[in-house]
Structures are given as C-alpha cells and as structure tokens.
C-alpha cells in the first residue's frame, strides 16, 4: 500500500514538474504554446537518446509518458526498435510507428467530435 502511494506521488510530481517548467516558459519568455509542444517532443527524443528518459519512465511511469516529452520518448523508442529490426530503413519508419496509436486516436476522435459536436460561444 505504502509503495503504491509513493509511486503515485512520483507520477504526480514528475508529471506536474514538466507542466511547471512549461508554465514558466510561457509566463517569462516569448515562447508560444505551439512552440512549447514542439520543444517538448524534440526534447523527449533527445533525452531518450542520451539515456536520461528511460530511467525516468521506470521511476515515474505515466508521470513521464503522459507529458509530450513522453511522445518524444515513444518516437525515439520506436526508431530504436525499427533500426535494430530492419537496419537503416528503420530510421524512416520507426518514429511514426512508435507514436502511431496516439496520432491515430487523436485523428479519429477529432473527426468523430467534428461530426457530433458544434462549436459553442465562450463566456
């Protein structure tokens, strides 16, 4: 029980921590939210490449995989797997296959939402 609680705290702290860094960038620099998303994904690929992200995922689970850096981690993991499996051509296929689930789910949900919902005014 105590172990689960510690795990949950780690998930919360790491996930929340990623968000706080982004919030500081939004509030104190001119970086727009769209650029933050791009930066986070690329940072996720780099951190995985240098071997920092894998231990973080082991430590914090979804606290590390849910932020967009985790999307970059999936890109990097996917490409590593594909290169081992198929050689250099894997560099072209691995990144997208690693993130295919997320991207396809977002596209499918987006399309269904567009069919079902209409825009609402903001108040």
């Amino acid at each position: 029980m105590r172990e689960i609680l510690i795990d949950c705290l780690l998930v919360f702290a790491v996930g929340g921590g990623f968000c706080v860094i982004a919030q500081l960038l939004i509030d104190y620099t001119k970086i727009t939210p769209a650029r933050i998303l791009v930066t986070y994904v690329v940072a996720g690929v780099i951190l995985t490449a240098v071997g920092i992200y894998e231990p973080l995922v082991k430590l914090a689970g979804c606290g590390a995989t849910t932020p967009l850096t985790g999307f970059g981690y999936s890109h990097a993991r996917g490409v590593e797997y594909a290169v081992r499996d198929r050689g250099l051509v894997g560099a072209l296929t691995g990144g997208l296959s690693g993130t295919a689930g997320g991207i396809t789910a977002a596209m499918t949900c987006g399309f269904i939402a567009a069919l079902v919902f209409n825009g609402k005014p903001k108040t």
Binding site: V38, V41, V42, H75, G90, A91, G95, I103, G110
Partner: peptide, 29 residues
C-alpha cells in the same frame, strides 16, 4: 475544413518529433 485544419496546431508536433526521430535513428544505426 476538418481534414486539413486538424493539423494546424498539432501538425508541427508530429513533423518535428518525426524529424528528430529520423536523426536519432541514423545515429543509433
């Protein structure tokens, strides 16, 4: 409308994430 604009904000995330993975893939190879 729906098909093209879906990626107006998220598109760059996929583009640059994939580009970074290609570079890492070549190095990893």
């Amino acid at each position: 409308g729906v098909g093209a604009k879906m990626f107006i904000i998220a598109g760059p995330v996929i583009v640059y994430g994939t580009l970074a993975s290609v570079i890492w893939g070549v190095i990893y190879y």
